[in-house]
C-alpha cells in the first residue's frame, strides 16, 4: 500500500501557530482514491458507463434519507393493513409508496414489541437499507459496532442510552448478502390522533437501526 502523505503531515512538537482560516489543502490522493479514479476512467473510456451514469447514481443515493424510512414507519403506525403488508414483504410495501430498490436488495421489516427488541448490523461489511435510509452513519461501518453488536448487544445498546429489560428478548439481525433490515419501532404513548407527518417527525435514523426507541421530544431531553 502506498503511504498517504500530504504537505500537512508533520509533528506537532513545534511552536508555530496554525492559521484557522487557511484554505483546506488536499494532499496526494490515497491508494484507493487513485484506484477508484483509474477504474472509473477505464470504464468510461471503454464505453461501459458514462460520466452521466455516475452523476445520476449519486443523485439516486442523495435522494434517499431517513425521512423516507420515517414516513414508512409513521404509515405503518396509522394504517394496520399497510403495517401487515410491510411486515409480510418490506420491499413490496415500500415500492407501493414509490421507494425504488435500485440496488435490488430485499427488505425485512423487524417489528419491535413489548417483548422483542431488534437491532441491525452488518458484521462483514456495511450492508444497510440504503433505499429507505440513505447512507449509514460512520459508526455503523466501523469495527467496534460491527463486532460488538453481535457479541454484547445489551452493552452496545446501553452505550446509546438504551437499557433493555432482561425479560425483553434481543434479536440481532446480521446482513450477509441481499437482504436488508429496517426496524419498526414501538409507537410512543401519548401520540393518539397524531397525523402521519407529526408521527414521522419523531422517527429517527437510530431508532430504525434499533439502537434507540422512538420517544417524545420531552422524554429525549430528560
Amino acid at each position: 500500500m502506498i503511504p498517504e502523505t500530504s504537505p500537512s503531515d508533520h509533528d506537532h512538537d513545534h511552536d508555530h501557530a496554525h492559521d484557522d482560516h487557511a484554505p483546506v489543502v488536499e494532499g496526494r490522493p490515497g491508494y484507493y482514491d487513485m484506484m477508484e479514479t483509474a477504474v472509473r476512467e477505464l470504464f468510461i473510456e471503454k464505453g461501459l458507463i458514462t460520466a452521466g451514469d455516475i452523476r445520476r447514481q449519486i443523485e439516486v443515493l442523495d435522494s434517499r434519507s431517513p425521512a423516507l424510512g420515517a414516513a414508512v414507519v409513521a404509515k405503518a403506525w396509522t394504517d394496520a393493513a399497510f403495517r401487515s403488508r410491510l411486515l409480510e414483504n418490506g420491499r413490496r410495501a415500500c415500492e407501493e409508496l414509490g421507494i425504488s430498490f435500485y440496488d435490488d436488495t430485499d427488505l425485512i421489516v423487524l417489528e419491535n414489541t413489548e417483548t422483542v427488541h431488534n437491532l441491525i448490523v452488518c458484521t462483514l461489511c456495511s450492508c444497510y437499507p440504503r433505499p429507505v435510509l440513505g447512507l449509514p452513519p460512520d459508526w455503523y461501518k466501523l469495527k467496534p459496532y460491527r463486532s460488538r453488536a453481535v457479541v454484547e448487544p445489551r452493552k452496545v445498546l446501553a452505550e446509546f442510552g438504551t437499557v433493555i429489560p432482561e425479560d425483553v428478548e434481543i434479536r440481532v439481525s446480521d446482513s450477509t448478502a441481499t437482504v436488508r433490515f429496517l426496524v419498526l419501532p414501538c409507537r410512543p404513548e401519548g401520540t393518539d390522533g397524531w397525523s402521519e407527518d407529526r408521527l414521522a417527525s419523531l422517527v429517527t435514523r437510530d431508532a430504525m437501526i434499533g439502537v434507540i426507541p422512538v420517544t417524545l421530544p420531552q422524554e429525549a431531553s430528560r
Binding site: V150, V151, E152, P153, R154, K155, E166, D167, V168, E169, I170, R171, V172, S173, D174, S175, T176, A177, V179
Partner: peptide, 22 residues
C-alpha cells in the same frame, strides 16, 4: 440462540441472532 454462539453470554437466554445463509 446467543448463549450457544457466545460462551458466557450476558443477557436473556432468549436473546438470539438472526441471519441469512445460503
Amino acid at each position: 440462540p446467543m448463549p450457544s454462539l457466545w460462551p458466557g453470554y450476558e443477557g436473556s437466554p432468549r436473546d438470539e441472532l438472526q441471519i441469512e445463509v445460503y
